[in-house]
């Protein structure tokens, strides 16, 4: 009995996660026949049962949102996809063990840069996630990661930089020259898990000093 190699039907089954929005993605055959359908199951590590993901049974797209099903941050999960093509050939592949805490990527913060005459203020908006507490309250990254810090950086015409690390979301760079261009960045850093967001960047110019005019 010769078992047919169907590995080409299905590759790279993995979670793509940002701020705990957990999307399962995969690739099919390069010239994937339009009649190939995919079905998704998921399970908690250490439990016996695979559960079918409603809404991702016999679908033709190559992604499935498992955010709700994998929203317990202290759990570890697996997901698997079964592909069946028009000729009835099938293949099943599983993800690595998925840990929302360790594996989610951190999105750049949303920031407002406010230029003044001799200072620039940076206000980070609350970094909300899709995770809700038991009381339904939407959690921010600060609620989830106790060691979260914001890295505020201001570069002064390629000659030097001002760098500050804070737990608070608001920071003001003082002692700046009026009417001058600055390049600001803010990053979210979670040292314990070696996580660092991509930087939010703003190009901003201090206001002219009109006190003596």
């Amino acid at each position: 009995h010769i078992t047919e190699d169907t590995s080409d039907l299905l590759q790279h089954v993995k979670f793509q996660s940002s701020n705990f929005e957990n999307i399962l993605t995969w690739d099919g055959k390069l010239e994937s026949a339009p009649d190939t359908v995919y079905s998704v199951q998921y399970k908690t590590y250490g439990e016996g049962e695979w559960l079918e993901k409603e809404g991702c049974q016999r679908i033709t797209r190559k992604s499935c949102n498992l955010t709700v099903e994998t929203s317990n941050l202290t759990e570890l999960y697996y997901a698997r996809v079964t592909a069946i093509d028009g000729a009835g050939r099938s293949a099943t592949k599983m993800t690595n063990r998925f840990s929302p805490l360790q594996d989610t990527n951190i999105k750049p913060p949303d920031v407002t840069c406010i230029p003044k005459v001799r200072s620039i203020q940076m206000n980070v908006h609350p970094p909300y996630t899709v995770i809700r507490a038991r009381n339904g309250h939407q959690l921010t990254l600060e609620n989830i990661f106790q060691d979260l810090r914001y890295h505020f950086n201001l570069r002064i015409n390629h000659t030097y930089q001002m760098h500050f690390e804070r737990k608070q979301r608001k920071f003001e760079f003082f002692g700046l020259t009026p009417d001058t261009e600055f390049h600001g960045t803010v990053m979210i850093c979670i040292p314990n898990l070696f996580k660092e967001s991509a930087p939010y960047e703003c190009q901003v110019k201090t206001l002219p000093d009109r006190t003596w005019t």
Partner: peptide
């Protein structure tokens, strides 16, 4: 202070 390519601001 973190070492880097550019000098770092200490104080005004």
């Amino acid at each position: 202070v973190r070492p880097g390519v550019l000098p770092v601001y200490l104080e005004t």
